[in-house]
Amino acid sequence: MSSPFVGQVIDLLAALMLLIAFAMLAQRRLLRLIHLFALQGAVLTLNTMVVAVTLVQSHLWFSVALNLVLKVIVLPMILIRVVNRLGLRRDAESVGNLPFIMLVAVVLVILSFNVALPISRLAGTITRGTLGIAMASMLIAFLMMITRRKAVAQVVGFLAMENALFFAATSATYGMPMVVELGIALDVLVGTFIFGIFFFQIRETFDSLDTRSLERLGGRE
């Protein structure tokens, strides 16, 4: 397998990551959002796999398995179940001024590309070009959390951010140390469970999952 070709495949996958990040930012339907998240996980897994195959890095295979199980299967399933149980299957939320948000996202992309440029020049990995994309995906996921009001969407945004972080780690240094990776995976899993429990609590207390209900701070009525 020739090296430039692998590099191009990785670039293609990175571009797909970015595209999915944008699609998530624009997606109004909750269920579709979760599907997109699963897709992002799949792309991530594929990317890690390509790197693992080329570089024969055994610990990366472990990441591949972890990603596949956790981000492509388990987490989306949990989220979909939550959505089903809460009866949000057809839920869509209005994303205010979408063109403006998209333009902000483009500015974020430019910003992160330029910030990443000197770092990726330093890195010696074949995946260095994708660092900017990883950073951009992370910022876009962050932006998505900011622009959403529904709790589930915010959680998806959070998980997408984690995806992007993982991607950044793969592209900069071929993945984080195993311990850190395992720790994060566990965190995410537990976090999602806790979020799931929270959703029900919020819903019982306020009859809605709109996080605006949480904005009234204690006691002041």
Binding site: A14, A15, L19, L98, V106, V109, F113, G129, T130, I133
Partner: peptide, 22 residues
């Protein structure tokens, strides 16, 4: 406009991706 806005975004993303990875 939304449809064409999407086309525009895709084209912009393509250009930006070119700057970074190519």
């Amino acid at each position: 406009p939304e449809f064409l806005g999407m086309a525009f975004m895709l084209a912009v993303l393509g250009m930006l991706v070119h700057f970074l990875v190519e």
